[in-house]
């Protein structure tokens, strides 16, 4: 058990180092001199040389990487090219917003997707099943940015019920959370259905039914519970994806999260901000995945941690 936890921790550590190397090297693979970029188009050669010295850009790459990684570990992500101020506080401000939005989307996906999947499995091949599965394939096929625009068109412009952009109040939260949840909702409904269809044929489900347990209890207490571990894993993985995948939703609804920050930084060629945002998101995703794996061990006694 302990050996398993330690080995998973080791893997995540390697992954985190790998992520940071990719993100670090990416800035140095860019066509053009980082020092010239820092200085802007007006800078003279002397000023650029000065900048190179200040930022340590004349040192060998491994040395630069180590000092950069050291600074990042202390929360120093450098200075934004665009805003001219440290990136760390901006990241610290945007990160919880993205997490909050992801949690909202995940809540909707779980609260609607799992019961919908159970319902479809119980009424297999009947109208309810076909409807749920049809909606779920449609949900996975529709582009997030299109659904978001349609929702703005309908709920904001035509009905005037909800604001089309902004952040801070609960009413700002509803449309983005729905938008971000749809793909995960569809996926969870499909997954729950297909696992439930098999679980409903199991002997222990038949036993539960034979001894006269009410339908709902058979479905949720016996069948769903037996397939819960892989579903919990899927939910965890979706959470990781939602934190970083909110790029489009955040842009459409002007939510000041990490995703929008990265997109705006790319547009402004503000590489340190892109680096910081991508690094933070990828690190969050791999740490969430670790948490899910460890959780899995506790949820499912059948998992052998060798």
């Amino acid at each position: 058990m302990l050996a398993y936890v330690l080995r998973r921790l080791g893997h995540v550590l390697v992954t985190l180092i790998g992520i940071s190397i990719i993100v670090f090297v990416s800035l140095h693979l860019t066509p053009g001199d980082p020092a010239a970029m820092l200085g802007g188009s007006q800078a003279s050669d002397e000023e650029i040389a000065q900048l190179r010295k200040i930022y340590g850009l004349n040192q060998p790459l491994p040395v630069q990487y180590l000092s950069w990684a050291g600074r990042v570990l202390h929360g120093d992500f450098g200075i934004s090219f665009r805003a001219g101020r440290p990136i760390g506080p901006d990241l610290a401000h945007a990160f919880p917003i993205s997490v909050y939005l992801a949690l909202g989307g995940l809540f909707l996906a779980v609260a609607i997707g799992i019961p919908a999947g159970v319902l479809a499995a119980v009424h297999r091949d009947r109208a309810i099943d076909l409807t749920v599965m049809g909606l779920s394939v449609a949900g996975m096929s529709m582009p997030v940015f299109w659904i978001s625009l349609i929702m703005v068109l309908f709920f904001s412009l035509q009905l005037g019920w909800l604001p089309s952009s902004g952040w801070g109040e609960f009413r700002h939260f509803i449309l983005p959370a729905v938008s971000i949840s749809l793909a995960s909702l569809a996926l969870l409904a499909r997954m729950t259905r297909s696992m439930m269809v098999e679980a409903m044929l199991e002997d222990f489900v038949r036993t539960a039914r034979a001894k006269g347990a009410p339908d709902r209890s058979v479905q949720y207490k016996h069948a769903l519970r037996s397939v819960l571990p892989p579903i919990v894993t899927a939910i965890g993985l979706r959470f990781g994806l939602l934190v970083g995948g909110a790029v489009i939703t955040e842009t459409v609804f002007s939510v000041p999260g990490l995703g929008r920050m990265v997109v705006q930084a790319v547009g402004a060629r503000d590489f340190p901000t892109v680096q910081g945002g991508v690094l933070l998101i990828a690190a969050a995703v791999s740490i969430i995945n670790l948490a899910v794996d460890l959780l899995h061990v506790f949820v499912d006694p059948r998992v052998r941690y060798t």
Binding site: T15, I19, I22, S26, G240, G245, A282, S286
Partner: peptide
């Protein structure tokens, strides 16, 4: 491969386009 899988797909694409 695990390292690449840690990047959400659209983010990886954005990083490449940025470069």
């Amino acid at each position: 491969m695990d390292i690449f899988l840690a990047f959400p797909r659209i983010l990886l694409a954005i990083l490449v386009v940025a470069l």
